[in-house]
Design a protein around this nucleic acid. Structure first.
Length: 403
DNA sequence: GGCACTCCGTTCTTCTGCAA
DNA sequence: TTGCAGAAGAACGGAGTGCC
């Protein structure tokens, strides 16, 4: 029960973030902006008007006037400052989803209804009259109603998610997977980061800034996206998208892995190397074009790399690193040597960052790069025809779950 | 028959607990 | 601190009963 309550609460946050994404994508001009948690949950600023939207998502709750009464009173507080000349006039919008009970509210409402159901309330057995507190006349309340739009038939959660996907596909001309894993994932991160800014000026973003920020074709390890998707499901989808094929083509695959500075465990790294080697090599005698993967370990201390190589070698796990004899320089020809059943080379280790480009330049076959990074991608491919997948990880063991 | 009172189920509002 | 769901309690309204 507790866990379900938490999930429902998180769903409420997501619903609000998703609505912000929808509103940003629906802005007509690139210069138009929205503010997260401004006057209301979402403030929309267009060339002609400003609208403050209060968003409610009650997946398991029936509509009752009291549920939306408090936000309406807060909007009236703002309106009071408007008629006093302290603030600029804006439009107010209450956008809510409820499981049932929508028929209880007949729109439009009048000032009598507003006073009775939204402005009169009880707290600790004391009755309050919000309109009397603010000394507002019926005419002023009518004016407030003319600025207020109530929609308690808001889109259901999944329908809104589908709408975002459609908008992103249309905006970026991408596929559904990219819309979700690249652009929606990035969009969630951008909105989340805006929402936690203390300064309201920093919670503002224009459509063009937003589109620029989310236009990154790489997978982020974004806690909000993982919460939305579920870690296991996310890893499964990544595996299906990038690492599942019935017949693996004999391509030259580069696995570029950043070693986290904390919680490094050598056995875990070895396990990942074994997995990549096993899955992404074919050394059978019957294989016409045998192959094995290239692996580069970013930020691994020199001494640790040496220990790792010693251990692999002592376990008869055959690999090459482009150095043919003691004192020799890195040889591209050596590292590019074809792996086969006779030499049993299970993977090719690139010791240094610069060896990646030297090797890539030498190879004429189809190449693919899979980069797993911790914070920011550290290898930028300039090869137009080379597939380059960038996936953010939180820990080394994530890689094994994906590949 | 009409009115007042009581009971009880339903509806609505407010409070509380929980998680972020 | 906020926003959600659920609990608790107040308010409402219909049915039944008794009295004038």
């Amino acid at each position: 029960m507790k866990e379900r309550t938490a999930i429902d609460t998180i769903k409420g946050y997501f619903y609000q973030f998703d609505l912000a994404i929808v509103k940003l994508l629906e802005l007509k001009k690139d210069t138009e902006t929205i503010v997260i948690e401004g006057i209301e949950d979402i403030d929309i600023n267009t060339a002609t008007e400003e609208t403050a939207i209060q968003c409610k998502y009650h997946a398991k709750k029936e509509y009752n006037h009291s549920v939306i009464a408090k936000p309406i009173r807060l909007m009236l507080d703002h309106y009071k400052e408007v008629i006093e000349g302290a603030k600029k006039q804006i439009n107010y919008k209450l956008y809510g989803y409820f499981e049932s009970g929508q028929a209880k509210l007949t729109l439009p409402i009048d000032s009598t209804f507003l006073k009775k159901h939204f402005l009169t309330y009880t707290e600790k057995k004391v009755e309050y009259y919000h309109h009397i507190k603010h000394n507002l006349t019926d005419n002023e309340l009518d004016d407030f109603i003319s600025l207020l739009e109530i929609n308690i038939n808001a889109m259901e959660y999944q329908s809104q998610v589908k709408k975002i996907s459609t908008l992103l596909i249309s905006q970026f001309g991408c596929k559904a997977f990219e819309a979700e894993h690249f652009f929606y994932n990035n969009a969630l991160k951008v909105i989340k980061e805006l929402s936690i800014e203390d300064d309201v000026k920093k919670r503002k973003i224009s459509k063009s800034e937003f589109l620029k920020k989310i236009d990154l074709k790489r997978i982020l390890f974004n806690e909000w996206f993982i919460t939305y998707k579920g870690e296991a499901k996310l890893f499964t989808e990544l595996r299906t998208q990038y690492f599942t094929a019935l017949n693996i083509s004999p391509f030259e695959r580069f696995f570029i892995i950043e070693i986290p500075t904390t919680n490094y465990v050598r056995t875990e790294l070895k396990d990942i190397i074994f997995t990549i080697s096993k899955k992404w090599s074919k050394l059978s005698k019957r294989e016409q074009k045998p192959f094995c993967p290239y692996i580069y370990l970013h930020n691994i201390p020199h001494k640790e790399l040496l220990e790792l190589k010693k251990e692999l070698y002592s376990e008869d796990f055959i690999f090459i690193d482009g150095f043919d004899f003691d004192g020799a320089e890195f040889s591209v020809k050596s590292i590019c040597k074809t792996a086969n059943n006779d030499n049993s080379i299970k993977f090719k280790l690139l010791n240094k960052f610069e060896h990646i480009n030297l090797t890539l330049n030498e190879i004429n076959k189809t190449k693919e790069i899979y980069q797993f990074y911790c914070t920011n991608p550290f290898f930028n491919s300039s090869y137009i025809n080379v597939k380059h997948v960038q996936i953010q990880i939180s820990q080394l063991t994530d890689i094994k779950k994906i590949v």
